[in-house]
Amino acid sequence: MELTFRTGTLDDIDFATETLIEAEKGVGIRSSWENIFSLSRQEIKELFTRVLEENIPGSEFCVENYLLACDGPKVVGGISAWVEPGSGPGSHFIKTALLSKHAGKELWMKALPKLEIVAHGLNRTPNTLQFEDGYVIRSYRGNRILSALHKFGYRRYLEKYPALTAAQAFMVKGNMNSTNPMVKQGWKIIAEKPGPPGFDEIMPGKSILHWEIDLSPFKNPS
């Protein structure tokens, strides 16, 4: 197996959709998205496909923000990454605009109480590299592919934004399968935020862990 890495294109929407759903499942059967919108897996896939076809950068809902690992032509793992804006609408504004427009008012308003629960305390730091929704297909797990995707992301974004100092990620506590390689790479938990009542009925855990890594060891010496 010789892996190559690249960024996503509109041809990768199916894999990005799979990543968005599978990364939010944890060890459960239903993804948090299915719980939030009370939709079937197929209906969520169709919603995400419409959202991703917009190709608006700045959040995990942009396929060109996906870093992908490939075994030959086959995409075997992915993670979304972007730099949180220092001014203007943050990624949450972009993400909710995309979702609300494509879900429609009725479905959005119905999902709003659950969205308020899961959005609680998720404040992304401006001008940091953000990672979200990592996923590797089952038969390729155990090969540190997410770790390699992180490193690919550091290189790619530090080339483009040399002033970046840190990368961050939010993960639900309990969805910890992929965190050992993160710790070895230098990631640290900087905060744990308990979810409000009802959080664990939607998400695969009771609290959110805020992770960060110092990017200075990954910068090329000048």
């Binding site: 943050g90 949450h92 504004f93 993400k95 909710t96 605009a97 609300s100 008012k105 959005w108 308003m109 709003l112 969205l115 308020e116 959005a119």
Partner: peptide, 9 residues
């Protein structure tokens, strides 16, 4: 961001 969508509606 959530209240922003309600405001837009």
């Amino acid at each position: 961001s959530l209240n922003n969508t309600i405001m837009i509606y």
